[in-house]
Structure formats: structure tokens, C-alpha cells
Design a protein around this nucleic acid. Structure first.
Lengths: 207, 207, 207, 207
DNA sequence: TATGAATGAGACTTCATTCAT
DNA sequence: TATGAATGAAGTCTCATTCAT
């Protein structure tokens, strides 16, 4: 995954330095993008938050859009890495699904702002970068799909494979909903409440 | 509802003309916004598509953002009006819910591009206009919430009121998902399939 | 003097109507020019204050600058007419001068805003119109010059003719000063005070 | 005094460069403003005269009005500095006053165009900047007031303090008159003539 | 004669990107 | 390698003036 950053060209030769600086760059940019959106954030502002000159910044990227990709890539990997970690352990499918949903929703909650950013600015990426991010999203969805597939095989879940794919996607958007519809969701429910209600609904619908 | 347009000031005195031209303007702008997004569409391009001079365009609005509001308002009302119409008739709650979901998903399908636009560019509106759009969205959600509430009263649905609200929101995002995740959804399912599967899942989860 | 208005072409044939309407136009424009200055006042605003359509307004003038000329001309004539009136009667030169200064200062005071306008926006006129206004101003100055000349002949005033011209101009600018330096003048002196002090200084300097 | 320039924000970090470029900018702008007035001069023209791109120009200022302030500030300081310098030396009040008037009128003569500009465009400044310029003007007036006050104490001048303030203001406007009424003043008098006549009138009026 | 919608040139301003130092 | 001043294209918006009705 780390190699994804290399998709973006740089003047700098030292690869370690690139990665270190880009990490700092992402942190600076994310903060500003969350606050004001991609289009309304200027490269000057990013450079200032980054603590470097404009020239230096442009040693690590080629265009402003590169920064957005770096940011999206970073955000997505945060979710993916954390979720991957939580997935270990030998449990039955229902338990596994409950845990995965819980972990996923908790992750979303912890990076709400990033979630918003990820789904609102993706369209500003060029085709190639956008596809990269989308495919990353699909990998994530696959995690849920696989758990459900296991449950179907174990006869725990009583749906077909085609429905499983939709349920997996439903889980994804219901997670995002916690961030997107915060005015409704977070005003009326605690995160635990929300997780319990959604999980029960999902399990119920496929059992 | 028509009065919402009056939120936006105009140099033109003839109110009918304002409405006519704004309708044309919305049509022109929607097309471009869908293609390239709000920020990447220039007012000059809109004026050209609008078929009038820049000056004329600015006789009907005050700022570029006004155009976005007009567009969002228009899109939202399309959905709302159509859904409202489909809601008449005396059926039991389950039947009503099935029909409402079906109608809503069909509407979303018929204005996919607009849906995308509506949910991606809302954040570019100023606070006031954004709130206006959000509250309109909440009204829509309420429609589903009310049907479910009726089902609960009739003992058709076996959930509490707090869960009902979440289900209503789930329906909304699952509709939007048809547009947003078209690469997944529309590649793998026909609209009818999608509607059937999602409806069954929902009914199942609350019965 | 009335013919000065004819310097400006019009589509309208009825000359009386022209004069009537132009008077109204001047009143509308003066108010706005005083408030916001010539450049920051739009023709649309003038038309609105004027109570006519833009098309109608342009029947009475050719360009926006024409309005400024009409206004300057009007203001200047107000002063001139009033001063002319006050000049009648048989008095000795010193008495005459005292009275003329008094009358002039009182007039300036009564049209302070206009005075400001007249001297700040004149430069926005084209050469011809500006010269017209300037020559009108010189006529006014001549009034004072003539009184002083009379006093010199009567041996009341002990200066030469060349000095008289300067004194006349001094009187003019000291009058304007009441309007221009209002923060100093009107904060520290009543109009009567101011008139008395300035008149005494002037008389003293030439006796 | 130099700090007055800091009232205006800049993108440039090198403060010396700011001062240098702003000086160049003022020179370019003054020339154009004198020729055509503030409103009729475009930023593009200023940039061209400035010898830099529009973008570069806007690195040194925030708005077009800032340029006007810079210009007014510069002009005023030219007068103020020169007059301050001429003020040294131990002379009696009458001698001092004669010299101060002479120096002031000579300065005005040497920067006639600037004087015109200063007093015609001040109103285009925003409140804060306008007040800044006005208060600078009042400081200048104070110089004359103080000399006269000294003469009153020394019994050289036979007027009261309230009259002294008016005389000081008269001197200011009579200086400006040399520039404003150039068609009258400079056509009929040499500068030396003008100075002599005005000075004698003033001294006469207060002795 | 009156209306006011439409024109379109041009104004001010921003900002991603480059490059001399 | 780092700096940040400079570029210039492009953006949004205004408004004096015209002309079909």
C-alpha cells in the first residue's frame, strides 16, 4: 500500500524523506480541507500550515490535486488498516459481523471529519486517482461481504450471495451516515445506541 | 414552496419572467454542474448555456452561489413533489412502505445526476441556504418515518419509535446509494432487483 | 442662465417638460451624489430615486456625466441667484462687503453638502462642462472683486487692484472652508462667530 | 511615520522590499491618478506603469483603495517632512510666520498635482484611512497655529486664540488655493508675488 | 412617449505554478 | 535543496447604455 504514494512524482530523491514530508503535508492539508474544503483552501495556506516554502512544497507534489489524492489515500488507509487489525480471531460469522460493524462504526466516528472529506472531495480527483480510491473502498466493502458469505455457508444467514453484496454496501453507507447525517444521528443517539440499533436491524434482516 | 425562490434578490421586476428565466437558468446550470461540478463550472459557461449575456444572468441572481441554491432547491422539490403525489391512497402500512420505497427509488433513478449533485455540492452553500436544503431533506425523511410509525401502531412493525427514525434514514441513504455507488449497484442489479432486495431487507428487519 | 441646460441634448421636444423633469432629476441625483459620490452612484439608483424608468431618464440626458453637469450647474446657480439678490441696495463699500460676505457664508452653510459635491466632483466633468462651471465660479468671485474695487476707489480700502483679486478669491475659499473643514470650523465656531471673525480679518487686512 | 505603511497588509515577507516596491507603486499611481483621477485609473494601468504583473501588484496591497491610501500618505508626508525641516531656527514670531508661509507655499507649488489629488480623492478612502489623513492635515495646521500663538504671547499679534486657529486654517487653504485655483492664481501672479501678497494680507489682518 | 430587460465590455481580485537567487 | 517573489490567466461581478415592445 505504501507504494501508492509513489504514484505521485517528486523532485526529491531520498524516498524516506519523501514519505516523512508527505505525511506532514497530509496532516497540514487534511486540517485545512476539513475546515474549508478542497477548492477554498489555497496552496499558500497549505504551505504555511506545512511549515515550508511554496517551492519546497512543490518539490513533493506536482499539482494541488496531488495533495488531495495524498489526503484521500491516507484517510482511506487509516480506516482500512484499523479495520484489518480488528478482523483477526476465530469467531462465528454472526459474532464476526457484529464486531466488524462495531469496529467500523467506531473508526468512522473517530475520523468523522475525514470521512466527510473523503466522500465530498473524491469527485475533484482526476479519473485515475478517483478509481484508485474507489477500488480501495470496494476492498473494504469486501471485508463485510466475506463475513456474510461465511455466514451463508454456515447457514447462519439466510440470504443469497447477491443480497449479501447489497448488505455489505448498506453497512458501508450506514457507517458513513453517522458522519454525514450527524445532525440527525448524533443528536438523537449515542454511538453505542446507534451501533446496537443498526447492527440489530442488519442481523435481523439477514437471519 | 415557490416562494423559496424569492429568497434570492433580482433586478428584474416581472415576477413571471423571473420564474421562467430561473427555470431556464437551473436547467443550464444543472447540466454543467453535473458534468464538471460547481467549482469547476464558470459563470461564463453557465451564461452561454443559459443563452444569455453574463449581465442578463446577473439580473436574476446576486452571486454564483445563488445558482447553486436555485439548482439544489429545484432538485429537491422535484423529488419531494413526485413523492408527495405517490403517497395518496388508503393502504396498510406495509403496503404503503413498499410503495413509498419503490416510488422514491424510481425517482432517484430518474434523476441520478441531480442526486449526486445535491449531496456533493450542498457544502458549498452558505449556512442559511444549506440549512434550508437540509431541512427539506428532513421533511422527506419524515414521510417514511410516519409510515413506519403507522405500522408500529398497527402492530405490523415490531420496533420502537427511535429505531423507526433510523430506518427512515436508512431508506433515504439506500436510495442515494443507488446513485452514489452506481458502479457497484447498477452494474450488478437492475433497478427492480435492487428495489426488491432492499425492500425485503428493510421489511424483514422491522417485522 | 436657463439656457445652460440646453447645452445637453434631449429626445424630448417640449422644452418646458424638459426643464421640469430635469429639475426633478437634479433633485434626485444631488441627494445620491452627496451621499455616495458621483462614481459610486449608479444610473439605476438615480432612475429609481427619480421615479422613472431608465429609458425615460435617458430621454432627458445623453450620458451619466450629463447628470453631473446638470447638478453642478444647478448648485452653482442656487448660490449665484441668491447672492445676486442680496446684492441690491445703496451702501458704502465696507458695508456692502460685510453684507456680501455674510450672505455668501450663510448660503454656503445652507447648502453645505452641495458645496462639497460641487468642488469634489467637478473634475469628473469633461473639459467643456468643467470650464463652464469654472467660469460661473469666476463670475461669483467677480462680485466680491467689484465691491472691493469700489472701496478702493472710495479710498475705504487701502490695497491695489491686484491684491483685490486675491482677496476676492480668499473670500470664496474661506466660505468653502466652512463646508470643507467642517470638522474644524463647525466644531469650534457658530456660523455667526465664524462670519464675524473672518469678516473682521478680511476688512482688517485691506483697510 | 514609516509604520503607517504597515496599516496595509502584504503577502511579501521582506519588509525592505515592501517599502521599495510600494515607493515605486506610489510613483506609478500618483502619475496616473493626477492625470485621470482615482476612479478612472484601472489597476491594470497602474500595474503597467508599476512595471509588474497584476499579481505582483496585489502582493503589496489588498485593494485598489490601499493604493490611494499609500499615495495620500506619501503626499502628505512629503509636505509634512519638508515643512518640519524648514521650521528650525530661533526667530521672532512674525519672522517665523513669514518663513513658514513662504516654505509651505513653495512646497505646495512644487507638488501642485499631488495637492490637487490629495484634496479631491480623500473622500474615496474608507473612514479609517480618511481619518488618518485628516488628522495628519490637522497636525500641519497646528504648526501655523503654534507660531501665531507665540506671536500673541509676545504681543506681536493682536488677536485672540480662537481667531488664531482660523487664521492657521486660512493659511492652509490659501496655500491649497495656489494649486486649486491655478487658472486664476498662477495666470495672474508669480509664486513670489502670490506669497508676498498673501503674507502681507495675513500679517496685516492680525497685527 | 415610456418601460425595463438585455447587452457586453471591462473592472477588481485570486491563486496555482514557476524560477532566479 | 530551499526560498518566496513574480507571473498571468482566469474568475466573479458591475453598470452605462440600448432597443424591442
Amino acid at each position: 500500500m505504501a507504494s501508492s504514494k509513489l504514484r505521485i512524482a517528486s523532485n526529491i530523491k531520498n524516498e524516506e524523506l519523501i514519505n516523512l514530508r508527505r505525511q506532514e503535508l497530509v496532516n497540514a492539508a487534511v486540517k485545512l480541507f476539513v475546515e474549508k474544503g478542497f477548492h477554498k483552501t489555497t496552496v499558500r495556506e497549505i504551505a504555511k500550515e506545512f511549515g515550508m516554502s511554496m517551492g519546497a512544497l512543490y518539490d513533493y507534489i506536482r499539482t494541488k490535486e496531488d495533495i488531495l489524492f495524498l489526503v484521500c489515500d491516507h484517510i482511506f488507509k487509516s480506516v482500512s488498516d484499523k479495520l484489518q487489525v480488528s478482523m483477526v480471531g476465530e469467531k462465528d460469522a454472526k459474532e464476526k459481523l457484529r464486531n466488524a460493524i462495531r469496529d467500523y462504526f467506531i473508526i468512522i466516528d473517530s475520523i468523522q471529519d475525514y470521512t466527510l472529506l473523503l466522500y465530498q472531495e473524491t469527485k475533484s480527483l482526476n479519473r485515475k486517482d478517483r478509481n484508485y480510491v474507489l477500488s480501495a473502498e470496494m476492498e473494504l466493502t469486501k471485508i463485510f461481504e466475506n463475513i456474510i458469505a461465511q455466514g451463508i455457508k454456515e447457514k447462519t444467514f439466510n440470504i443469497d450471495k447477491r443480497t449479501a453484496k447489497i448488505v455489505a454496501n448498506n453497512i458501508m453507507v450506514q457507517g458513513q451516515m453517522w458522519a454525514f447525517r450527524r445532525w440527525v444521528a448524533q443528536k438523537n443517539y449515542s454511538l453505542n445506541n446507534y451501533i446496537k440499533i443498526q447492527t440489530d436491524l442488519i442481523i435481523n434482516s439477514i437471519s
